[in-house]
Design a protein around this nucleic acid. Sequence first.
DNA 1: TGACAAGTTTAGCGTAGGCTAAGTTTGCGT
DNA 2: ACGCAAACTTAGCCTACGCTAAACTTGTCA
Lengths: 146, 146
Amino acid sequence: MSKSTQKSKIDRTGDRFELTRGSHARETAEDYVEAIARLIEEKGTCRGVDLAKLFQVTQVTVSKTLSRLQSEGLVDYEPYGPISLTKSGATMASYARERHEVVLEFLRSIGVSEEIAQVDAEGIEHHVSPETLEAFRTIARRKGTC
Amino acid sequence: MSKSTQKSKIDRTGDRFELTRGSHARETAEDYVEAIARLIEEKGTCRGVDLAKLFQVTQVTVSKTLSRLQSEGLVDYEPYGPISLTKSGATMASYARERHEVVLEFLRSIGVSEEIAQVDAEGIEHHVSPETLEAFRTIARRKGTC
DNA sequence: TGACAAGTTTAGCGTAGGCTAAGTTTGCGT
DNA sequence: ACGCAAACTTAGCCTACGCTAAACTTGTCA
Ligand SMILES: [Mn+2]
Ligand SMILES: [Mn+2]
Ligand SMILES: [Mn+2]
Ligand SMILES: [Mn+2]
């Protein structure tokens, strides 16, 4: 033993490339919990059909994704029932929403048109670290100025 | 006929949510061609093992992805041979690289630390429209000023 | 009460991108 | 020449997220 880790697997020292599988699943989770929170807030309830319309995918896709998110402890629902967030899901939703809003406000503040800002924010939000988010906040705050 | 599109499928009017499957495949393609271009430029040749080290995945994953990219006409290589870019792949690489550099420079210019900027740029680059990129360029240009 | 429509799930399929294990090819040094 | 190590591929498995077709549940209304 102590022949050091034979076969060594992978050295993840300083990798700026995240493993895409895990990354993409996290992005999906963030979009879902954010949408669920908003739907519940805006129309009192959230159903699979609402998410399917919003994300432009079939209800089947939504159903399968929700079941994954439930198994991960983010959402809660019974078959054929309305969808709610767990405490952990609600926490993720609130962070996701805050980040989304900051990114969107930031894009508007640097003169990106509304439609484009909406689309870009939807993607960028998932790749913004706390440090970058803070820098975005600062810029958005002095919108127009300078 | 003309009963309007029965079953209607999906109305993709104004969707800011891209279909994730296609999106992620495009992001992977962008990272690969950009990396291949850089490796060829910097060390004269590009092999699967280089990409595996860079992306921190196994050579098996690289091999399968390269075969997909070849079938899409972006890269060219023979079994056990070095990897090159097609014209189309080189074009994509040059756009990807320009975008990557602008995003990175922009993040630096608003005070994000080097390491964080590197990581965030790697993700953000894939979600920046031409309009947003232009806004980033403008901000990066007046780095320090204001 | 029952029929119907809308919503949801299940079954089965495809692609993309991860992995390990095992075999193949290639280049190099002795 | 040969052997060996590194590089690469193939086989087979997994998860995530798309889809269609088909079955099931639920609420509503005649
Ligand atoms: Mn969002
Ligand atoms: Mn999003
Ligand atoms: Mn890049
Ligand atoms: Mn990237």
